[in-house]
Design a binder for these strands. Structure first.
Lengths: 187, 187, 187, 187
DNA sequence: GATGAATGAGGATTCATTCAT
DNA sequence: CATGAATGAATCCTCATTCAT
């Protein structure tokens, strides 16, 4: 792995373990096994580093969300696919998911970056699906961004309970969650 | 108001405005209009202060959630009351709500504190209601904690949209949200 | 005991246990069981308090040094009496002895106080004895203050070894020390 | 000189000039001409710094005590060599000598450090000499540690007089002191 | 590019002292 | 006289950043 990747991975690890609060460069250098000055070859300062980590995590999630997404499937199937991918991303990439969730509304992440979406345009796919569902009279009339947030918020909330081991998330529970999130947006 | 309450209120304000990242003692003392040493009469250090603010916010939310809760009312009425209270807490106490939401799963809050619940045992009331609904065959069979988290997640995402997008949450919209969350957990 | 004495006793205790370095007023108030402002009824500030404790310790040692001192006894007997009293003072009042020893050359004690001697004029008695011995051709010719310091220095050194339990100080050892200190000043 | 040595030298200077009481980091950094954070590359905190200075002073004294010590010389010659070295160390290194003397029995220096001795084992050499002298019937029978402390106490008090009263300690006076300390431990 | 010793502005914390009760 | 909450200047300490190697 390159030095740059080492640094970014160490950053994400430390944020997950101790919170951004206590991520100091000293800890970072030790964890990433690089010299103190090396980081400045790649990132102008701490904020840029964190933003880069955020950008990469968003990119990873964006790719994950559209995995096996079949544009030709039914509305219901597509909705469930998106929500399933969202949930599985959280299960397989807890560090990335929590980081995104925590900092999406934090002043530490530059607003342009937060709203930038991802190169895969997964947001656009979700929004289009919502609008399509509303046109068909299946999905409740509401701001499409709000609906998107509702979809994300439900999954997010479920994942947080899972992370602190309130309950398992096996096949049965996953299906229940997908069903519930679908019902929540129906007319 | 006592100095202690001044300090805690100023802390919550600053976290809300600028994020925990940038809450320095200098800002805190100025905002709370107290001397630099005063805080140490009440809190051993910054972390204890933040934890105390968290504890108080949780207590406030716990009390709010059970306001006007009538154990003799119908299942549906009780469900709506709990969800209404949750929503109204978020509307009336946005700083407390966001703070709780952001830090409940952050390493900055000690896990014991997160799991402590509130003295009013509002969680237990919610869980009992879910179990009761499942016995009656009305609420879908699933882990009660999972269901609880679903209820919270829906309200939470609606609130975040409300905070950011500044759309109104008047009587009509509130009723829609309560209905939607009810449908999400039905069989 | 009066509050003033409580405070002075607590000060001496804490200096002995932790060093002047770490004697804070907070610890002092707790140990002496008095309110934070009480001290200022008796002492203008911390330095005056420490100086008062020093003055009292010096007074106590001064009185002790002349106990059972018989002006009519032989030069040798009087010398041994003074040295014995010095040694026994150190054995019975370690806190006072170490405090005096440590701060006699410290800038923390005002120079006037250090040179003030004690009301019993024990210093004058010792100095007169030395001069008398030198006139008789028994005691080595040297500055009488230097000789006084030699007498004190030997006892002090022995006591410090005793305090850290390098050896016991029972009757036999005490006599050996007195003899050695006598021989050290003989012609 | 290295930064570390600069810092330690400045620390010793300041302790000598103003007492440990008033050695603040601000003074230290200015005196040592280093940045405020540099010290923390070498010492975890102020106490460790002072202990390190103590350790080094003890090491220096230990080496000095055994300079030109000839194990083949006569008992008397060896005794005088040890006492001469002790005295000359005090004359040439007054800061180190006074620092050791003041803090060896202070709670600020950890007891382990005080008892650690020096790597050159100068204490052991002195103790062995005493025991040898006692076997030959020359040195008075007493606890060897007590005798060692006597030897040190005499030199120490002479030095303190020298420091304060500024009388000279030239060849003649030095020989008198050595003779006096020798007589003090004879049978 | 990589390093890590050095930096010093800035933040956390202490503690002697005051003063209203 | 006695109290102890409040104070804020002084102090300790941290940590992002620089730069010579």
């Amino acid at each position: 792995m390159s030095k740059k990747q080492d640094i970014m991975a160490a950053t994400l690890d430390l944020i997950h373990e101790e919170g951004l609060q206590s991520v100091t460069f000293a800890k970072l250098f030790k964890r990433a096994s690089v010299g103190a000055g090396t980081i400045y070859n790649y990132f102008a300062n701490k904020e840029e580093l964190v933003n880069a980590v955020y950008r990469e995590a968003r990119k990873l999630m964006g790719e994950f969300l559209l995995m096996n997404y079949d544009p030709g499937a039914s509305l219901y199937e597509r909705f469930k696919r998106l929500q399933l991918n969202r949930l599985e991303f959280g299960i397989r990439h807890p560090k990335e998911f929590l980081f995104i969730d925590s900092f999406s509304f934090s002043p530490y992440i530059s607003p342009e970056l937060r709203d930038a979406g991802d190169p895969n345009a997964s947001s656009e796919v979700v929004l289009a699906l919502i609008v399509e569902g509303q046109k068909q009279g299946v999905v409740k009339e509401m701001d499409s961004h709000l609906c998107h947030q509702l979809m994300h918020g439900i999954i997010s909330s479920i994942l947080k309970g899972y992370y602190v081991q309130k309950y398992p998330l096996s096949e049965v529970q996953i299906q229940q969650v997908l069903e519930a999130s679908w019902k929540a947006v129906l007319v």
